[in-house]
Simulated assay, not measured.
Amino acid sequence: MNTSDRDDYGVVAAPDTVRFERLLPGSAERLWAYLTEAGKRRQWLAGGEMEPRLGGRAELFFRHSDFTDEPVPERFRDIADGFHAHGRITAFDPPRVLGMTWPGDGVDSEVVFELFPEGKNVLLVITHRRLAGRAEMANVSGGWHAHLDVLAALLEGAETPPFWSRIERLEADYSQRYGRDSGGTTGE
């Protein structure tokens, strides 16, 4: 895969799908641990135990205060103390592919993490599919973008970037990139 012309923004891969690619330091095994081990995953996304097998449970506990000390914006006050989500493992091929259902507004979507070694680095590809429309795609993309920035800083040993203060700006950026929808149309 050619990484030289990528930026950090996700792209629309299909009418209901967004895709992110990030070149991260370290091995696929190291990154796999940050996807599957609750203690490591909570440092950038969400804690919670997973059953490491196809069809296994994926418990996610989102508590953003685990990796940011920024005040929670009013819009997110209802999740300030964290929230639980439950999914199922849809793909499991260590340390290359992890897929899981992802809780959504009424309908679960699916997230697939793929790892491709590239020298001393690993290319992480996240594909999030079965999203309800462009508004949900922009919301999800802003979140993935901010979480991936935290993961990259963690893996690089750098200072964690702001999280909450970036969410609204990123969602606005993605809304503009993707175009707003109405009634689940693709906006294209």
Results as ranks from 00 to 15, higher is better:
residue 164 W to C: 08
residue 60 L to D: 10
residue 150 V to Y: 04
residue 76 F to P: 03
residue 118 E to Q: 15
residue 131 L to G: 07
residue 128 H to I: 11
residue 6 R to Y: 01
residue 172 A to P: 01
residue 174 Y to F: 07
residue 112 V to F: 06
residue 151 L to P: 00
residue 60 L to M: 15
residue 186 T to A: 14
residue 125 V to Q: 12
residue 115 L to A: 04
residue 143 G to A: 09
residue 156 E to K: 14
residue 1 M to P: 12
residue 3 T to F: 06
residue 90 T to I: 10
residue 121 N to R: 13
residue 71 P to N: 11
residue 163 F to Y: 15
residue 92 F to L: 02
residue 91 A to D: 13
residue 142 G to V: 04
residue 63 R to K: 14
residue 107 V to L: 12
residue 71 P to K: 13
residue 34 Y to E: 08
residue 168 E to M: 12
residue 31 L to F: 01
residue 170 L to D: 08
residue 168 E to L: 10
residue 120 K to L: 10
residue 112 V to I: 05
residue 47 G to A: 08
residue 16 D to Y: 04
residue 12 V to A: 14
residue 182 S to P: 10
residue 73 P to Y: 02
residue 74 E to I: 10
residue 8 D to P: 06
residue 130 R to Y: 07
residue 45 L to N: 06
residue 89 I to F: 10
residue 152 A to H: 08
residue 2 N to Y: 13
residue 19 R to L: 04
residue 112 V to A: 04
residue 57 R to E: 13
residue 159 E to R: 09
residue 7 D to S: 09
residue 178 Y to T: 07
residue 172 A to E: 14
residue 21 E to D: 11
residue 17 T to Y: 12
residue 150 V to D: 06
residue 7 D to P: 01
residue 105 D to A: 12
residue 12 V to M: 11
residue 7 D to Y: 01
residue 119 G to W: 06
residue 7 D to E: 07
residue 157 G to R: 12
residue 80 A to T: 09
residue 77 R to S: 12
residue 164 W to D: 08
residue 157 G to I: 05
residue 59 E to S: 14
residue 119 G to Y: 06
residue 49 E to Q: 08
residue 38 A to D: 05
residue 115 L to G: 08
